[in-house]
C-alpha cells in the first residue's frame, strides 16, 4: 500500500517545495520508489527546484483532461532511478483540478510507487484542499517565527477536521545560535505551542539557496546539515528509529518529546 504524504504549511515561503524535493530524493536514494507531485497549479516550482524544468512535456492537468497518459507526464530523475516528478500546469488555476481528480491521479500513482509526496500550495483554499484530499498522512513545515507558527496551527486544525490527522511537524530554518541567544523560538517551544509530534528539525543552511539555484537538491549528494536532516526525516518516515537532534549543538530532544513526562 503506497503512502501518500502531503507537505503543507499554511504560510508561503517556509520551505514546502524544498522539503518535498529533498525528502523525495532521500527516500528514492534509500530504495523507495517515490514520485513528487507538484500541487501548486499555476505557480509550479517543484520542477525548477529539482532541476527538471526543461524536460516537461505534459503535466497533471493534461492527464486529467485526457491529453496524455499518466506515464507520459511523469519525468524520471536521472540522478536517482527510483525518483519521478509529476509536474503541474503553469498556465491554469486551482479550479482546473477537483479533489476527486487528485484522488484519481494518486490512486493510479499508488500502483506504481511506494511514496507519493504532494507539494501543497500555500494557503487554505482549493489548492490546499486538493492536495489534502488524497493524503494518507500530512507533514506541516513550520519556521521558528510567529506568523508561520500561527498558520501552522490553523492548518493542523483543518487537517484534523478533515480526518487526515494527526499531522507531523518539520521545523525548518532553525538557527541554533539564535535559539541559544533566545532570539528565536526553539523546537521545544514550537512543539509545546502546537502540541503536535515532530518528525525532524532542519537547520538554516546556506547550501539550500545554491542548491535551488542549480536545481540540485542537497539530499542528492550534499553533506550539509540540511541534507543530513532531510535524510534522517526520510529514514524516520520509513520507520527507522533515528533520534531527533537539535541542529549543531548536538543536544537530543528525543527523550523530552517522546520519552513521556508530557
Amino acid at each position: 500500500m503506497a503512502r501518500i504524504v502531503t507537505i503543507t504549511s499554511g504560510k508561503g515561503g517556509v520551505g514546502k517545495t524544498t522539503t518535498t524535493a529533498n525528502l523525495g530524493a532521500a527516500l528514492a536514494l534509500q530504495g523507495h520508489k517515490t514520485v513528487v507531485f507538484d500541487g501548486d497549479i499555476g505557480l509550479r516550482n517543484l520542477d525548477i527546484v529539482m532541476g527538471l524544468e526543461s524536460r516537461i512535456v505534459y503535466d497533471a492537468v493534461d492527464v486529467i483532461e485526457g491529453r496524455c497518459k499518466l506515464k507520459q507526464a511523469l519525468i524520471r530523475d536521472k540522478r536517482a532511478e527510483k525518483l519521478s516528478l509529476l509536474p503541474t500546469a503553469q498556465s491554469r488555476d486551482k479550479s482546473a483540478i477537483s479533489p476527486q481528480q487528485m484522488q484519481q491521479i494518486c490512486n493510479e500513482l499508488a500502483t506504481e510507487f511506494d511514496f507519493v509526496l504532494i507539494d501543497s500550495p500555500a494557503g487554505i483554499e482549493q489548492g490546499f484542499r486538493n492536495s489534502l484530499a488524497p493524503a494518507t498522512e500530512v507533514l506541516v513545515v513550520v519556521n521558528p517565527e510567529v506568523s508561520s507558527v500561527r498558520d501552522a496551527d490553523r492548518v493542523i486544525g483543518l487537517i484534523e477536521s478533515s480526518g487526515k490527522g494527526p499531522a507531523k511537524l518539520v521545523i525548518n530554518r532553525l538557527v541554533p545560535m539564535r535559539v541559544k541567544r533566545q532570539e528565536m523560538l526553539s523546537a521545544d517551544d514550537i512543539v509545546e505551542i502546537l502540541s503536535t509530534e515532530i518528525i525532524g528539525i532542519v537547520p538554516e543552511d546556506e547550501s539550500i539557496l545554491a542548491a535551488s539555484n542549480r536545481g540540485q537538491p542537497v539530499s542528492f549528494a550534499g553533506k550539509s546539515p540540511a541534507a543530513e536532516a532531510y535524510r534522517d526525516i526520510a529514514r524516520r518516515m520509513t520507520g527507522e528509529t533515528v533520534p531527533i537532534r537539535v541542529p549543531q549543538d548536538g543536544e537530543t530532544i528525543w527523550s523530552r518529546i517522546f520519552g513521556g513526562g508530557r
Partner: peptide, 9 residues
C-alpha cells in the same frame, strides 16, 4: 524576544 513570541502565540 523568543519569550515574547511564545507568549503572544
Amino acid at each position: 524576544s523568543a519569550g515574547s513570541a511564545k507568549q503572544r502565540l
